[in-house]
Simulated assay, not measured.
Amino acid sequence: MFARKKLVTLSLCLLLSACQSLLPGTDPLPVQRVAWEHIQPDCQGQACPLVNIDTLIFPDEPPLSALIEQRLLQMTNDSPDAPLPASLQSYESDFLHGAKRGWNTYLQAKVREQHDQLVVIELSSYLSTGGAHGMPGRGFINYDRTRQQALSLQDMLVPGQTTAFWNLASQAHQRWLAANQLDQDPEYSRNWPFEHTENVALGQAAMLLKYNVYSIAPYSSGHPQLTIPYSQLQGILKPQYFPAGD
């Protein structure tokens, strides 16, 4: 769950440890964090509906700023045929207008890493509209600064290597099961088999795969994360997407 916060707007250059591997002459992108939380107008008490937004603007990279907002808005959509809200502000207005007591929604974008020519953004969402628990979501943006666009998995892989990649991901899943002492439980494997995911990130230390709840594990397991070492990706991942030094 995201912590509640008052309106805060600040500019900072995220000098994370991951930024130290940026290509020579490539400084980390300056980023502006914009965050606010509003409750339903005229509502009193702890159960008032609320909207919490914690997002990013990249002043020097407008396409990335626009993409972050678009992806966050897509995470609010629980119907493939429903139109997307025009903006985060309009989403907030519509949600609070129709929300019942106890409803809340959270949207967050954060810089996970900046390394080489890449900016890796992690997106999070949480929507609670009654029931035993809310529904969280996760996503990644792998933004290539040289191309000024987000990368799909196919952009990252050598042509013809998709099957090889998912074979490695399946092996990573087996390692995750073993690490969580689930590999000897045949019922668990039947109920929660390996699946593909769209949430793939080019981390500095390894390639990351993150899964939504109820995908390869029950809700109580949260968002399982698999890792594929870059040493296994030779000939599968395009050379330009290996971190410097690998």
Rank of each mutant, 00 (worst) to 15 (best):
L7K: 13
T9I: 11
C13L: 10
L15T: 05
L16C: 04
L22P: 00
P24W: 10
P28S: 11
L29I: 11
P30E: 11
V31G: 10
V34R: 06
Q44M: 00
G45V: 00
I57S: 05
P63Q: 14
A66T: 13
I68W: 15
E69F: 07
Q70V: 08
Q74T: 07
D78G: 00
L84Q: 10
S87C: 08
S87G: 12
S87I: 00
Q89L: 06
E92A: 03
S93N: 13
A99N: 02
A99E: 08
E113V: 06
Q117A: 13
V120E: 05
E122G: 00
L123Q: 03
S125C: 08
L127Q: 08
L127G: 00
S128G: 01
T129V: 03
G134S: 01
M135A: 01
P136H: 11
G139C: 01
N142Q: 05
Y143W: 15
D144F: 07
R147N: 06
Q149I: 02
A150V: 07
Q154V: 08
M156G: 02
L157D: 10
A164Q: 08
W166V: 03
N167Q: 15
A169V: 12
S170G: 07
Q174P: 02
W176L: 10
A178M: 07
A179Q: 14
N180I: 05
N180G: 03
L182P: 03
D183H: 06
P193M: 11
E198L: 05
N199F: 03
N199K: 04
V200P: 05
A201K: 04
A206H: 15
L209N: 07
Y211V: 05
I216S: 05
P229G: 06
Q232M: 03
G235H: 11
K238W: 02
K238I: 10
F242A: 10
D246W: 14
